[in-house]
Design a protein around this nucleic acid. Structure first.
Lengths: 197, 197
DNA sequence: CACTTTGTCGACACGCTGTTGATTAGTTGC
DNA sequence: GCAACTAATCAACAGCGTGTCGACAAAGTG
């Protein structure tokens, strides 16, 4: 437990190499057919070394994701602090932009379902914190219903994936505006805005 | 080409056996770690027989899905015929209910991304046909923008998955109503309805 | 009944996996 | 700097699922 602090520079180096190799490999040729041989080859490491750190490539992916997203997005809004979802959502969009090929590969058709769930857990609390303070939100049960959080989270995740697959035709800010318009006002508000805008 | 009509009863039988075996196996233990050995064993067929019909388990899954969904859902609305999405969406919900364990496994955390895309292609045209005739929809470009179709389709798919994972707390009709409320009026309309309802 | 197609069976090489034991390289505390 | 420790390397191994093959049996077709 005490040596779990990973102080040894070799461990840090090895995991960084593995992580970078994973991101590169995934961006190039996806995750599913990716082998541990390829990852370690790209990382210029021995295959056996991989197993000293991770059980399989899923575990490596999780570790990489937490490191990436942790460096980009502040930890989930603790207790309904941020009312405005613009900032965190925009940060999320710019983060996936930075690793566009990686996220495109991993969220797209050849993607990784459990990774999508991980991304959900990043988006979901943002939406939850927003809704729990929404203007009209004073329902008997204090928390917003799960359905609508699922609805919005799934929509955002899907649109992010679409955005990546289409080479990000809109800027992060524009995307956020579109998303928020649809979310709060629905199709009708969105189409109305399209006409006037 | 002429014998591609699959008239031979043995072919029909074999593919049916493989399809049923796949559905059962997936419902029990997911798709990812499922082997062709297991499928053919469950189907009481020889492993080599599998390769006479499909290249891999993905191909079998596609075939099964098209057969299942084709029998349940009418082919995608040809040219903006159905304005009301209630009927096809409800049919979709009842269909996935019928094979709940299968769809739960294949849409959930251990799911299959390319399958989700396939489901998208079933939902997407329904949404498109709806929006292209929506009351406020008279935008310069005749077709509804891709973003919003992606938004709604992803939301529906996510909610369907949530619905399955939570053992379908609401009926198909109730789900459709909830979905349509959020979709057309957005969060505000939904929360408003929650209060009064 | 002859002919064709499908399914069965055993076997094979292939590739990736996860692990092991011995060895080398690098790090830390004294 | 040296000794003790830990991490990384390397070769090798068995295991498993794959995809394919050829020979044979079984079922369908005209």
């Amino acid at each position: 437990m005490s040596n779990n602090l990973r102080v040894d520079p070799r461990v840090i180096r090895t995991r960084a190499l593995l992580g970078n190799a994973l991101v590169e490999c995934v961006a190039e040729s996806g995750f599913e057919s990716l082998t541990i041989q390829e990852i370690t080859a790209r990382a210029t490491l021995n295959r056996a070394t991989f197993y000293l750190h991770y059980r399989d490539k899923n575990e490596l992916l999780e570790d990489v994701f937490e490191r990436l997203i942790g460096a980009a997005i502040p930890p989930p809004p603790a207790e309904g602090i941020s009312i405005d979802p613009r900032e965190p959502i925009c940060a999320m969009l710019e983060h996936v932009s930075q690793y566009a090929e990686f996220y495109r590969a991993i969220l797209g058709e050849q993607g990784v379902p459990f990774f999508m769930k991980r991304m959900r857990t990043k988006i979901s609390p943002i939406i939850g914190a927003w809704l729990s303070r929404a203007p009209g939100m004073t329902s008997p049960a204090g928390d917003p219903p799960e359905v609508i959080i699922t609805y919005i989270t799934s929509a955002y995740l899907g649109v992010i994936s679409w955005w990546l697959e289409n080479d990000r035709p809109l800027s992060s800010d524009e995307m956020v505006e579109e998303l928020l318009t649809i979310t709060s006002g629905g199709v009708l508000a969105y189409l109305e805005k399209q006409k006037t805008g």
